[in-house]
Nucleic acid binder design. Structure first.
Lengths: 243, 243
DNA sequence: ACAGAGCAGACGTCCGATGTCCCGCTGATA
DNA sequence: TATCAGCGGGACATCGGACGTCTGCTCTGT
């Protein structure tokens, strides 16, 4: 008779742990295939429904990657769940997305400030050249061709934080960048002057890094994030006035 | 006839978006109830299976909170998904959990270093007293009563980062602390001397904060994290030698 | 050899029945 | 009257099976 169990812990949660244990025990790596659903059902003693719900949970955490028609594989363990989660938090906020955005900017700046020394000391010449070319790309693709601009901005910050050799910080940094760009459009205060100052700040960052001048790099960081912070503050004030 | 659809996007994913939209549209807040599963099925035009899988995904992200026997509610939007995800990444790592741990320590230190000034300037007298008492708790509960020690350590760092007024940083900081304590036991190199130096470092942090001496605070931070970093490095070396 | 039809395996979706959990109502008891 | 065991209903949990869709591979024709 179905449904007969009451072990205080949800079956699907046991299945989740079971699948995680399986991956660990078999020393699987991202991309490796997992047994098919029926096999997991038998191995874990659960119906297909429970196994599927467990897999969906693991999929949401990018611990598992399900491909329709192919099978189920070990996931890449990215921080996609963090992005999803924070994005929704930003969208949900009381009516005050602004605090979330301000916090986000704080964290992004914190990462780059905290890594400033390691950044300027470990960027190679080729990497600096690449950064230069990205700034050039931002100059060429105006706000009209927005997608190119934001892509260049993302690549810039990714490359900036990459050479410190801390994957976690790199991925977190990009996750926060992603969340910011998804949530930020709500505040629409990005003028042409802002764009120019942003580009100029990026150029200052590259120049400071090339000169291995940490102080100048920190100054450029402030030059970069101050306008962002100002836009958030202005949007908040505008919203407060409206309500 | 069931299963008839091919809109290139998975139905359960549409349901996920639908539920998110519903929460946003109705301006629901954490703790507010969602419609029952049958109602969601009808509203979103999907079977119960698909709705349930979607709910499990949202539950994994803490966007939704399912309580057996009660109903489904808007979640607290914590960073539990990040903890789950990073923990598993740490456990899975090639055989090199150590890099993950080192990265984790870097990030934790980065947060507190970057917020040093705001921490020392915004801690109230009562908060400083609480920090003192937490250090005292750590002194009294030796490594024998481990749970009290780690609880005090967690509370200490939580209180340290709380007054800066950036919820995101606070929650991230605690998330990383959680992940570290879950993954770290693999390296078991925590001696009595380590414990004493840890306690001493915490006391130095409080003293520096009370004196509003940022320089001393930064020095105490280094005193705190250096042993942690050393243990990770030693464990890595030990592991390399063994293999 | 090469291109298209067909096949097999794996995940996606739907359905209906039954079990378990929790809460609030009810009525017997002290 | 106050209390609490017992009942009922609502909501989620689990099960089993049926059918659809997707993808890659093979087996045909030309």
């Amino acid at each position: 008779m179905p449904g007969t169990r009451s072990s205080r812990t949800l079956l699907r949660q046991e299945v989740v742990e079971g699948i995680k244990r399986y991956i660990l025990r078999e020393r699987l790596r991202p991309g490796d295939p997992l047994p098919a659903e029926p096999a997991l059902c038998e191995a874990l003693g659960a119906s297909r429904s429970s196994v599927r719900e467990a897999i969906k949970i693991l999929d949401a955490l990018d611990i598992v990657d399900v491909r329709h028609g192919h099978g189920t594989y070990v996931g890449r363990l990215s921080l996609s769940a963090l992005v999803e989660s924070l994005t929704f938090r930003g969208l949900l906020s009381p009516g005050d997305d602004f605090q979330v955005l301000a916090d986000l900017v704080d964290v992004r700046e914190l990462f780059e400030r905290g890594m400033a020394e390691r950044i300027v000391s470990s960027l190679s010449d080729e990497q600096l050249d690449t950064l230069d070319s990205l700034v050039q790309t931002m100059r060429e693709t105006g706000a009209d061709e927005g997608s190119g601009f934001v892509a260049a901005d993302r690549a810039f910050h990714a490359l900036l934080i990459a050479p410190v050799g801390n994957d976690l910080i790199g991925q977190l940094s990009m996750a926060f960048w992603d969340v910011y760009t998804i949530v930020a459009p709500h505040l629409d205060g990005f003028t042409h002057a802002d764009e120019l100052s942003t580009i100029s700040a990026h150029q200052s960052l590259v120049d400071a890094a090339r000169a291995e001048d940490t102080t100048a790099f920190l100054k450029a960081l402030e030059e970069h994030y101050a306008p962002v912070r100002r836009r958030v503050t202005e949007a908040r004030a505008r919203d407060d006035a409206a309500s």
